[in-house]
């Protein structure tokens, strides 16, 4: 089948999963204790007012109808209205997207910059002191939660030197960059241990293969060996790794945005949670779930496209 057909087929397979996710998110809020209508109407509202609000919000309709409405809305990009701010949830979320994007990109870059060289180096020099050091480092790295790393960076770098702000996002692109250094560093450090471990493992697996021995037997070694034999054969595993990390990345993002007071999606979700803003929390959950599924899908497709063994005729 052609490349396009392949992609479309993959997309279609996702649809049932997406529907289940929307259903779960919807149900989640249905089982939550507490009365959304009262929340919206206010604590001092009369019972009639609350009933009116309940009607407005469509909470009197049968559950199926409510779900249908919700699903229909989601497909059109309508995630409902925030209880807190009365703004469309999609707008509330949208406003917070940019900082998170900066953070995620920055964090991934830092993580890859740390883990790729270290992971490969440790695998190539297996059992040598480099390998031991890298393994101990990543072992220790796992024990430190992201907020701790962030606070340590603030304490040891930002506060004494004053080079970096301790929070916020700034107003211009350069300010964004400036504000994102420490947070991105924190995120990168949090992601590294898993990545190093995984990269080291897949590199070792490739290094133990016959074809690498063949490469060495014709005198290919060092960087050319790494480039043509190792990296090409670990890309697929690396992409899969990045996809799997996504859930943890989003979680870390939530934590780090809280630590550095960054007005992103993570902070938004925490605020929505503590303010019990039902539609907003629904929206965030849905968005995050969709992001993860989307990343898995893209990783799947990319892996299939770059693997010469997969039959896709043009």
């Amino acid at each position: 089948m052609g490349r396009y057909a392949f992609v479309v087929k993959r997309l279609l397979l996702i649809v049932p999963l997406l529907m289940v996710i929307v259903l779960l998110v919807f149900l989640l809020l249905k089982v939550t204790p507490g009365d959304p209508a009262r929340l919206v109407a206010g604590l001092r509202a009369s019972d009639e007012d609350v009933a009116e609000v309940r009607q407005e919000l469509g909470l009197e309709d049968p559950v199926i109808v409510q779900y249908g409405n919700y699903l229909g809305g989601v497909v059109q990009g309508d995630f409902g209205y925030s209880y807190r701010s009365r703004q469309p949830v999609i707008d509330v979320i949208g406003a917070r997207a940019a900082p998170s994007l900066w953070l995620a990109m920055g964090g991934l870059l830092v993580a890859l910059a740390i883990s790729l060289p270290l992971g490969i180096w440790a695998a190539v020099r297996r059992d040598a002191w480099v390998d031991q050091a890298v393994r101990w480092l990543s072992l220790f790295g796992v024990t430190m939660p992201a907020f701790w790393v962030g606070l340590m960076l603030i304490m040891l770098v930002a506060l004494p030197t004053g080079w970096f702000p301790t929070g916020g996002f700034g107003d211009s692109a350069t300010e964004h960059l400036h504000h994102m250094v420490l947070p991105a560093l924190t995120l990168g450090i949090s992601l590294s241990p898993i990545q190093i471990r995984s990269l080291r493992s897949s590199t070792i697996k490739v290094l133990e293969s016959d074809y690498v021995q063949v490469g060495r037997s014709i005198g290919v070694d060092g960087l050319p060996l790494i480039r043509k034999f190792v990296i090409r054969n670990t890309i697929s595993a690396t992409i899969t790794l990045l996809a799997i990390e996504t859930s943890f990345l989003l979680f870390s993002m939530v934590i780090i945005e809280s630590t550095f007071n960054i007005p992103g999606l993570g902070q938004g979700m925490v605020h929505a949670a503590s303010q019990r803003d039902f539609p907003a929390i629904q929206g965030y959950t849905l968005l995050f779930a969709l992001i993860v599924v989307g990343v898995y899908l893209i990783a799947d497709i990319v892996n299939a496209l770059i693997d010469p063994r997969v039959e896709i005729s043009a």
Binding site: V124, I204, L207, E208, D210, V212, Q213, D221, G222
Partner: peptide, 9 residues
């Protein structure tokens, strides 16, 4: 860089 690599046994 000479590497201490592995072949199959």
């Amino acid at each position: 860089m000479t590497a201490n690599l592995v072949s199959t046994v």
